[in-house]
């Protein structure tokens, strides 16, 4: 009898412990409902959002804990604060999100939006950096865009290593104080860096001497033996391997003797390096063609067979007549 009583007491105690504890820690569902409806969510919205992070409502002990975890709902005020921080207008923000297939309505909490904006801005900055470097050399925006697209289209696996090697070779020139005082050997090295750079980027240059708008093509070999341009400018046109003009640059004799050619080379190498890195990422690529032609082909095949068969039987019937 005593044993039975003890067993019953134990059972009662176990039940009390296992049921009693979570009951005490449960958060008030009504309060939660009230809170989430303040930013237009239903209980289902909340549960689905929590499930995205492998969480349940029961994982939270208090409303404050839940609020803390969710973050601040987007309001006019904190949205404006975010826009100021990133120096964006609301239209620019919408355009930025649109570029990545999203809208402002996809976000409920300011922290989530901030994470996304940071990421997308950084991503676009890289592309901007390349364009900035190229325009610093003197390319127009159009030329910079064409060059960038050309670099992105290159199918060269070792491009990054090649460019890193060229970066090292150009470094000593950046420390030269008077670029007019380069030795013959240094000049040759600088030229060969440029040659290797253009060939690594699959750019074919054509050289012209220009005076008073008259341009005359010069073979590269002749150019090497020239001591002076004789008051003429050097025009370099850059083509891709298909022969499309990507960009051109016109250099005066002074520019050639100054440090310009070194700085331009460095910017070009860096632009290529960033471009090479970005090539590994998706840049709003075209979607794969998922149209399956097989069913149409099958129908075509069947139609062709029928056509042949009809022609054959009609011919046979006619010859039999």
């Amino acid at each position: 009898m005593k044993q039975l009583f003890l067993a019953a007491a134990f059972c009662f105690w176990t039940v009390m412990v296992s049921f009693g504890q979570p009951a005490a820690a449960q958060l008030n569902e009504e309060q939660v409902q009230q809170y989430i409806s303040s930013f237009g969510w239903t209980m289902n919205d909340l549960q689905q959002y929590l499930a995205d992070y492998d969480m349940k409502l029961a994982d939270f002990a208090t409303l404050d804990e839940l609020k803390q975890w969710l973050g601040a709902p987007i309001t006019e005020e904190n949205l404006n604060e975010l826009l100021t921080r990133h120096q964006l207008t609301k239209e620019e923000l919408e355009a930025l999100l649109g570029q990545f297939g999203e809208t402002l309505q996809d976000y409920t909490f300011i922290e989530d939006l901030d994470t996304a904006v940071n990421f997308y801005l950084h991503h676009n900055q890289e592309m901007q950096q390349v364009n900035d470097m190229l325009s610093a050399i003197g390319f127009t925006e159009q030329e910079a865009n064409r060059l960038f697209e050309h670099i992105m289209s290159l199918n060269e696996a070792a491009l990054t290593e090649k460019l890193a090697g060229l970066d090292k070779r150009i470094e000593p020139f950046l420390r030269v104080e008077d670029p007019t005082e380069l030795t013959k050997q240094q000049q040759d090295e600088l030229l060969s860096v440029w040659e290797d750079l253009l060939s690594a980027l699959e750019i074919k240059p054509k050289f012209y001497l220009v005076k008073n708008g008259q341009k005359q093509e010069v073979p590269y070999r002749n150019l090497l033996h020239m001591e002076t341009l004789g008051g003429r400018d050097l025009l370099i046109e850059m083509y891709n391997l298909q022969g499309d003009l990507l960009a051109d640059m016109q250099l005066s004799e002074e520019m050639l003797k100054s440090g310009y050619i070194v700085r331009a080379g460095e910017s070009f190498v860096h632009a290529g390096e960033i471009g090479g890195e970005m090539k590994e990422k998706m840049q709003g690529d075209k979607m794969p063609n998922t149209a399956s032609p097989y069913l149409s082909y099958m129908l075509m095949g069947v139609a062709l067979t029928l056509f042949g068969a009809i022609l054959y039987w009609r011919k046979r019937e006619r010859t039999a007549e």
């Binding site: 032609p293 097989y294 069913l295 082909y297 099958m298 075509m300 095949g301 069947v302 139609a303 062709l304 067979t305 029928l306 056509f307 042949g308 068969a309 054959y312």
Partner: peptide, 11 residues
């Protein structure tokens, strides 16, 4: 007929 059957079979 031969081409039609071949195309239909392959696809």
């Amino acid at each position: 007929m031969i081409a039609g059957i071949a195309i239909a079979t392959w696809s």
